[in-house]
Design a protein around this nucleic acid. Structure first.
Length: 774
DNA sequence: CAGTGAGCGAGCTTCCGCTTGACTT
């Protein structure tokens, strides 16, 4: 039995560390937190100084029992959870849950996984920092109170099963308010003027592409300018060359890794984390949930050697970056390759690509600046005061650009790259062509998953371990959707001067194409409005930053955590109670207009099952009619005509064999109903116009398919059937379905085979969620 | 994933941060 038990948070870390320590040490992992507030109630006794009710988490009971057993026989238990607020709390919870005696317990910390760092930590144990633990308790209790008090308000006032929280509600706010700004935005057009000029060198022509230093608001003004250019002469008024430089970006943190993987590899935030976790578990990269730019001394020196041997001494520059992120806890290193000498790795395509990106970014961060030379050439027009400007950029020394070019979120950034031909002041140029092109101002961009993470990090909201889950939560709740929306067409004008002739042309272009962007839903907008009206203090972008300051005071021992919570909770609870009692239910109800036939009002509002339209009001004699909005409709944009269309369904299509056929749109798309059964229509069928012939065709097709559904049944047990489904044959027993192994022929299966297959363990259900619209 | 088609009624839902699983004699 080992004399020493070391407990860390992550099993991969445990494995590595065990290799550093001798036989006297057993290293185990707690798998993160082992206890949490009870889930069935508030979990906090608000009448008793906010005493938390901690429970060993269901999925941690086994590991706690195992650790307890090991701890009882060990001479010393070393608590080596991370050196941050949560890590300190994990150690404290372990002391409580494992019932550790102070005399044989040591708290140690390190923030890089190297042998030296671990051995040094063992030599320098420190007492548990109870103030830091209290700061974590304050954080935990505050989040619980906010979440479990606000969510029930939403259940009653908006819709059941909704949620609110310190982090998720701000994320929704960002998306909802950005969309409002975009709706309000008016695009203005102006005319950008570009000219191509010819430079002749050694009897070869070079084109100098330049842009006028002024834009014209109106088409006439642009025309006036072009007229002036007819027969004008063009000369170079100045040539300015100045050196500049570019420095590499720091190595990756969770947030920057997610952003760059999104831009360069097209990975979603969750995909990045899944692949990074695989790399981490196979020992290829350091820990992937970090907010630190720090690299260990060992990493710095191996990077240095690597760069010098691969590229040469002049490419190397040791750099240590400092974090400026709000609320960073810096318990880990930056994300880097474990072995920097490995330029690439074995693995699947995603793993290889992500690893390569991490390797390049890490290496580049330790390389020298790129030296550039920027040139501005001004071209004067003899008949006008405006000047054309040509910009060029030449790389004099690549530096870090040799391995890594960071991409940007800016979608139109093409200006001033490349070399210019050598030109001289007062040189006269031939003009080849000048065009005035109508350009439009752009609204602020919608958030992608990755730019939302970037914004949240800037605001200090959320942690590396929660960025991906937060994005998933606000989609699960139906507050936002991740969508690609097609652009629209618009026309723009180009006026061209060529060969002394001015011509004008209308062209068309596609604009507003949005790829994988986050859009708010009606529910998201409504919940945001509601929370902003009543709880704007919690939705404030600075709320987290402000409470973080108080957590810091608690951590420094200058504040008592229960007092901080009390100051927050007293007014908050009064507000919650008041709203629950006195506030009206919100539905976002809006009068769209009047139905011409009946003269009844048509409303759009949020109902129990989502957005819907309503015809007429409820009174003693009449019930209003309701109809749900279609998937591509929203409360914000639906028109009266579209709403009236919704009431036309279900529509009588006709009679077939003495039974009526009706057509409507349901949760799963358009369908026809015949007798008591439903038949899905195709995407190309419109229930408003579908003919009786087509409806019968769809019905007969389905009936035909159903008749072929049954492959085999058994007299001995009518419960068991072999059926043909959408994904091939399967076994149905009662209400349960089972997959047939690939090597078996469905027709040949016996009853015994079926029973045997049904006893096989089932694959675990996917953790994914349905993108419900209800 | 194995088949669905609602209408504001008896039940339940929810937070943020740590960390990975995938039951068994």
């Amino acid at each position: 039995m080992a004399k020493n038990l070391v407990i860390v948070e992550s099993p991969a870390k445990a494995k590595t560390i065990e290799g550093f320590l001798g036989k006297e040490f057993t290293v185990k992992s707690s798998f993160g937190h082992v206890r949490d507030l009870s889930k069935n109630d508030l979990g906090v006794d608000v009448t008793n100084d906010f005493k938390p009710n901690y429970i060993i988490s269901q999925d941690k009971k086994k590991i706690v029992a195992e650790l307890k057993k090991l701890a009882s026989t060990a001479e010393v238990v070393w608590l080596a959870s991370d050196e941050d607020r949560e890590g300190e709390a994990i150690s404290w919870h372990l002391i409580q849950a494992l019932d550790l005696k102070e005399s044989k317990t040591r708290r140690i910390v390190f923030h890089e996984i190297t042998k030296d760092a671990i051995l040094n930590a063992i030599k320098n144990p420190r007492p548990l920092d109870v103030n830091l633990v209290d700061a974590q308790q304050a954080r935990r209790v505050l989040d619980r109170l906010v979440g479990f008090e606000l969510s029930p308000v939403l259940w009653r006032k908006v819709k059941p099963s909704l949620s609110a929280g310190r982090v998720q509600s701000v994320a929704v706010r960002l998306i909802s308010e950005r969309e409002k700004e975009i709706e309000k935005f008016n695009s203005i057009s102006s005319f950008k003027v570009v000219g191509d000029f010819i430079v002749n060198r050694d009897s070869k022509d070079y084109v100098l592409h330049a842009e006028l230093n002024k834009r014209f608001e109106k088409k006439d003004e642009a025309e006036v300018f072009l007229k002036k250019c007819v027969n004008a002469s063009y000369s170079i008024s100045s040539v300015e060359t100045k050196p500049s430089k570019k420095s590499p970006s720091p190595p990756f943190t969770t947030s920057t890794l997610q952003q760059e993987a999104s831009r360069k590899l097209g990975f979603s935030v969750s995909k990045t984390m899944i692949v990074a976790q695989q790399l981490y578990e196979s020992g290829k990269i350091t820990y992937m949930r970090t907010d630190s730019y720090n690299l260990s001394d060992m990493a710095l020196s191996t990077a240095k050697n690597e760069i010098i041997s691969s590229f040469g001494k002049e490419y190397q520059q040791t750099r240590q970056y400092t974090t400026k992120t709000k609320g960073a806890q810096e318990a880990h290193e930056a994300i880097r390759p474990t072995y920097i000498s490995n330029h690439s790795i074995d693995g699947d395509v995603s793993q290889k690509r992500l690893y390569e990106m991490i390797w390049k970014r890490t290496i580049a961060s330790q390389m020298s600046d790129a030296l550039l030379e920027k040139t501005n050439v001004n071209i004067a027009v003899s008949s006008a005061s405006e000047e054309f400007v040509a910009r060029g950029e030449v790389i004099k020394f690549e530096g870090f650009l040799k391995v890594y070019i960071e991409s940007t979120d800016d979608e139109n950034d093409e200006n001033g790259k490349g070399t210019l031909p050598e030109v001289f002041k007062d040189e006269i140029l031939d003009m080849q062509e000048i065009s005035a092109i109508e350009r439009f101002t752009l609204h602020l961009p919608r958030y992608t998953e990755a730019t939302l993470v970037k914004k949240l990090e800037e605001l200090g909201i959320g942690r590396p371990s929660t960025y991906a889950p937060t994005i998933s939560t606000i989609q699960k709740r139906g507050y936002v959707v991740l969508e690609t929306r097609e652009g629209k067409e618009r026309s723009y004008t180009t006026i061209t001067l060529k060969n002394n002739k001015i011509s004008s042309k209308n062209n068309t272009e596609i604009y507003g194409y949005e790829k994988s962007k986050l859009f708010p839903t009606d529910i998201g907008n409504l919940v945001n409005l509601f929370l902003m009206e009543h709880f704007s203090d919690i939705l404030d972008y600075n709320f987290t930053a402000n409470v973080e300051k108080e957590f810091d005071e608690i951590a420094e021992g200058n504040k008592i955590w229960n007092n901080m919570i009390k100051e927050f909770y007293a007014p908050f609870k009064i507000k919650v109670t008041d709203i629950q009692k006195n506030s009206e239910k919100v539905s976002g109800e809006k009068l769209l207009g009047i139905e011409p036939e009946s003269g009844k009002n048509v409303y759009v509002k949020l109902g129990r099952f989502g957005p819907m339209v309503q015809l007429g009001e409820a009174d003693e004699n009449n019930k209003p009619r309701f109809a749900g909005l279609l998937k591509n409709q929203s409360m914000e944009t639906i028109t009266l005509a579209e709403a009236l269309d919704l009431f036309k369904l279900p529509r009588k299509v006709g009679i077939y064999k003495d039974e009526e056929i009706t057509a409507a749109i349901g949760r799963f798309g358009p369908y026809v109903k015949y007798g008591n059964a439903f038949y899905s229509l195709f995407k190309t069928d419109d229930p408003h116009t579908v003919t009786l012939e087509r409806a019968i065709e769809v019905i007969e097709e389905k009936l035909d398919k159903d008749s072929k559904k049954l492959i085999k049944e058994f007299d001995k047990n009518p419960e068991v059937k072999i059926l043909n489904g959408r994904w091939g044959a399967y076994i149905a027993i009662g209400k349960e379905n089972y997959k047939i192994p690939k090597d078996k022929k469905p027709e040949e299966l016996t009853l015994e085979d079926c029973i045997l297959i049904s006893k096989q363990p089932k694959k675990p259900a996917k953790r994914g969620f349905r993108k419900g619209n209800n």
